[in-house]
Each structure stands twice: as structure tokens, then as C-alpha cells.
Write a protein that binds this DNA or RNA. Structure first.
Length: 470
RNA sequence: UCCCCUAUAGCUCAAUGGUAGAGCGGGCGGCUGUUAACCGCCAGGUUGCUGGUUCGAGUCCAGCUGGGGGAGCCA
């Protein structure tokens, strides 16, 4: 008797034929035949396909237990792997023993029925939704993409840097942050001036959850040359859209001795590597997404892996938009050089004009962050966004300002406190070097790859405004 | 946070201001090497919450809460 996953049985079914095997999993459906047997469809999550166990009524517990199995029951099935007499699977198990490990106490109210459910409903039962086809597939796709990220960087000599989750600087700039505190909210200590006395807080200062590992990882890039972070990130923005989470995962590489062009190439190579891995390793799950979620998802991935991304200067993007307007294309918001592109503008460029991901580069300095490197024209910075059809911004990156005088000028312009950035400025004083990096939203990548419509269904337990269940 | 839509059985949805229904799922029975199985019967509801209009509210109105779509912010 050997223990086997469903994936291994299907992957090497010839080798398993005739063998006594033990499989453990959860029942999807049970179909009875009065020829004296039941078909128990079970899944252990190791692959997309469920496994058919044929249970003859000669089993000791057939009438008392097997015939009463319903969706969700946990079972251990033992028996011989035989060629299937029916269609739909190459092999199946002729069971000699089925042990019911865990019953479903009330089948009538088991939340996951063998029928299509809405994703909104499944979010309310997030503890059980991984047992569905869709979320099982999402889980395996996430894993595949995450492993591909680490492989990609490892193969290229990058080091994975574990930047802090808790940050003591309020200088990260990228929007609202979650406070981290052990102070008693009902009895907040005050300074003589009446403000909150954070010196009595756990860290002796005000602290928050990170909104980006970038500033920290830049320090390691200026030592180990090629580094990246891959971890959770937190934004306290009150964003209620299908593309925003309060807690999400982000990949942020940072490369020393590099310019914006190398940064953009790295982002393109990474995305292609991730999607190639997905096409090679998760064909079963992708087929499901293509069948039931988004017809074009496999073709889209194959096209993306094979074609180079469109590179476009911000100024050219504006000119394309203005040309479209001149031809009668209507937009809700006006377009002119210097304005931040609206979602509708980004969608036009990537979905209508190009039909592929677009790398938009060299944005006006006034709409970008302080740390982005000033271009020689004095009015644009070396920033790049990658816009993907159906998603919008999937990557945001830049070459960093490595010249201290230029950085200080930008900090002053934006009225930021230079002292708060003392260690970030130190990097520019001690062996400064041109460097660049970007942030890739992991869940947005999952959405893009699978065609899932809502980012809340691309992460096991979504956190969004007013929602932190489970 | 703003605009729009929405909330009915375990799930997906019906129901002109007039006795709340169907399909799926569940239970029981029948049939069948079945595969979203099929056929019959049965059970299952304070119509999201609070208030209002009305002889009468699932239906109309107000507020609240949750969900969805769009926008902003961004990954």
C-alpha cells in the first residue's frame, strides 16, 4: 500500500496501474449505481482534476457510511488503481476500504454545493472556498507564480531581502498607512502639549505597517547589487474597487548600476518568465480558467510570452490620446501634457491602441514621487509604469535619484522633512550609484493570468475596507 | 470617499400593492459503470435591519447595514 496524491496518480497513471494505493481527500460528489456500487469523486487539491473511487457494496461500511457520503466529507480510500471503464478519467480506484475521517454534520447547510456559486457568496465562506474548482486553481496558480518569481531572481544572481513589515518612518509617502501600536486606546498617554505621547508606545515612537519595501531594499541594492523583496504590503486607503486590497503582496526588485531601460527590461523578463512557468506547470488549471472564467486567458499568456512589450514615452502617449480625440474618440477627462493619465486613458493605450502591455516611460516630475531621477530635460523623471489590458497599472517603477543635490531639491519642492530621510540621503553621500527598481502587484498578476474579475478572489483571505473576516 | 445598482429557501433566481414559487442542493424511494447523472415524493421562509405610507407592503418611501458596478488613490 503506497500513499499517493491525486496529481501523482494522474501524472504517472501507467506506473500506478495494478498497485495498491491510499488516497486522502474530500468528497466532491457521490453517485450511486444499483448495480451495487457507488462512485465517489474526491479531491485532495494536488491538481485540478478530482479522482473517481469506485466503492462496491461489498465494503463493510457501504450501507452504513459510504452510501451516505456527501460533498465535503473527509475520506481515506484504499484500493487498486485500474483502467477506468467509464469516460472522463484514464484510471480510477477499485476501493477495498473507505474510511470516513470527518463527516459533514448537516449536508443541507454545507456551504459548498456541487453547483456554480457566485464569487460574492464564496467570499462569505472563505474558509471553505479553497475546496471549489476555482479557488483550488487560484491557490495552485499563486504558488506556481510565486515560485517562478524566486527562481527567476535566483537564477539571475538576485538576493531575496526580507524588508521590515513594521516601519518607523512616516516618510514612505505612498498613501495612508495602518498604525501599529500597543497603546491603550481607551487611555492614550499625552504629552504636556496634549499630543499623543508615542514615547510610551511599544517602539518608543510612532510606527506603521509598510506600504512598500522599496526604501529599505535600496540600501541593500547598494551593497549586494541585485536584490528584491517579496512580501505583504499594506495600504489604508479607502479603495473600493476590484483592483485594490488593503493587504496585498508585492515584488520589488532593485538593481544597482542600472538605468530605467534596464529596469523596464527586467520587469518584462520577469513577467514573461512567470507566465511561461504558468503555461508549463499549470495547464490543468489554466484550461479551467479558459473554459469557465475567461476564454482568452491562455492565448493572452502565450502572446505575451512571445511578443515584446510596447515601449512608449509619456509624451508620445499623450500625443496618441490627443490624436484619438481629434478622430472623435470620447474621454470623460481631458488630456494634456502634464496631466496624470486616468484609467480610461490607460485602458485606451493598452487595450485599444496597442492590445498588449505597454511600458510608459518618462513622466512629468510633478505627478511622480520625490525619489525618481530627474531627466536632463528638467521636467520629466525616469519613471515607468507597465499597463496591462484589463488590469491597468501592474508595474510601477523608476530609476532612483542618486545625486544628493538633486534629491534634496526634490525633497524641498515637495516640502518633505530631510531629517526624516537621513539614512536614505546617506546612501547618496557614501558611494552613490545609479540604481533602479519597480513594484509588481502579485494579485494583479494573478488576475491578469487567470482572467478573474475581482482581486478579492486572487488572494486566500482578502482584506478590504469594512471587511476583515476570517 | 463620491455616483449608480442591489438584498426573497442552504445556493441561483421568480412573484401588477392582494394566500411567497421554481431550479439546484438536502431527505426518502425508483432506475442506471455513473461523471453538472436521470425520474417521483417530501421537508425547507419573521422576504437584510429600523421606521413610515396604505384596508393591505417582498413590492412604494426614508434611514442604516452588507454586496456589486463605475470613479478617485495606487500595486
Amino acid at each position: 500500500m503506497i500513499d499517493a496524491s491525486v496529481a501523482s496518480i494522474f501524472r504517472e497513471h501507467a506506473a500506478h496501474l495494478g498497485k495498491q494505493v491510499r488516497v486522502k481527500g474530500w468528497v466532491r460528489t457521490r453517485r450511486d449505481s444499483k448495480a451495487g456500487l457507488s462512485f465517489v469523486q474526491m479531491s485532495d487539491g494536488s491538481c485540478f482534476d478530482a479522482f473517481q473511487v469506485v466503492a462496491p457494496n461489498s465494503l463493510a461500511n457501504y450501507a452504513s457510511e459510504v452510501a451516505k457520503l456527501t460533498a465535503g466529507c473527509a475520506v481515506v480510500a484504499e484500493g487498486e488503481i485500474v483502467p477506468s471503464q467509464g469516460k472522463g478519467q484514464p484510471v480510477e480506484m477499485q476501493a477495498s476500504r473507505i474510511e470516513v475521517v470527518g463527516w459533514v454534520e448537516n449536508p443541507d447547510t454545507y456551504p459548498i454545493q456541487p453547483k456554480p456559486h457566485t464569487f460574492e457568496y464564496l467570499r462569505e465562506v472563505a474558509h471553505l472556498r479553497p475546496r471549489t474548482n476555482t479557488f483550488g486553481a487560484i491557490g495552485r496558480v499563486r504558488h506556481c507564480l510565486a515560485m517562478a518569481v524566486h527562481r527567476f531572481f535566483h537564477e539571475r544572481g538576485f538576493f531575496w531581502i526580507h524588508t521590515p513589515i513594521i516601519t518607523g518612518s512616516d516618510c514612505e509617502g505612498a498613501g495612508q498607512m495602518f498604525r501599529v501600536s500597543t497603546l491603550d486606546l481607551a487611555n492614550i498617554p499625552r504629552t504636556p502639549e496634549g499630543t499623543v505621547d508615542f514615547s510610551q508606545d511599544f517602539f518608543g515612537r510612532e510606527t506603521h505597517l509598510t506600504v512598500s519595501g522599496q526604501l529599505n531594499v535600496e540600501t541593500w541594492a547598494c551593497a549586494l547589487s541585485k536584490v528584491y523583496t517579496f512580501g505583504p504590503t499594506f495600504r489604508a486607503e479607502n479603495s473600493n474597487t476590484a483592483r485594490h486590497l488593503a493587504e496585498f503582496w508585492m515584488i520589488e526588485p532593485e538593481i544597482a548600476f542600472a538605468t530605467l531601460l534596464e529596469d523596464a527590461q527586467l520587469a518584462e523578463d520577469l513577467l514573461k518568465y512567470m507566465f511561461r512557468a504558468l503555461l508549463e506547470e499549470r495547464g490543468d488549471d489554466l484550461k479551467f480558467f479558459a473554459d469557465r472564467i475567461d476564454k482568452g486567458c491562455i492565448a493572452r499568456l502565450e502572446a505575451l510570452v512571445g511578443a515584446s512589450f510596447e515601449r512608449m514615452d509619456y509624451g508620445d502617449g499623450i500625443r496618441h490620446l490627443e490624436a484619438a480625440i481629434a478622430k472623435g474618440r470620447k474621454f470623460e477627462f481631458p488630456v494634456s501634457w502634464g496631466c496624470d493619465l486616468q484609467s480610461e486613458h490607460e485602458r485606451y493605450l493598452t487595450e485599444e491602441l496597442v492590445g498588449r502591455p505597454v511600458i510608459l516611460m518618462n513622466y512629468p516630475k510633478d505627478i511622480k514621487a520625490f525619489y525618481m531621477r530627474m531627466n536632463d530635460d528638467g521636467r520629466t523623471v525616469a519613471a515607468m509604469d507597465i499597463l496591462a489590458p484589463g488590469i491597468g497599472e501592474i508595474v510601477g517603477g523608476s530609476q532612483r535619484e542618486e545625486r544628493l543635490d538633486m534629491l534634496d531639491r526634490r525633497l524641498d519642492e515637495m516640502k518633505l522633512d530631510k531629517d526624516a530621510y537621513w539614512w536614505y540621503r546617506d546612501l547618496r553621500r557614501y558611494g552613490t550609484v545609479p540604481h533602479a527598481g519597480f513594484g509588481l502587484g502579485f494579485e494583479r498578476t494573478v488576475i491578469y493570468a487567470t482572467g478573474m474579475a475581482n482581486i478579492r478572489d486572487a488572494i486566500p483571505f482578502p482584506r478590504t475596507p469594512k471587511t476583515c473576516d476570517f
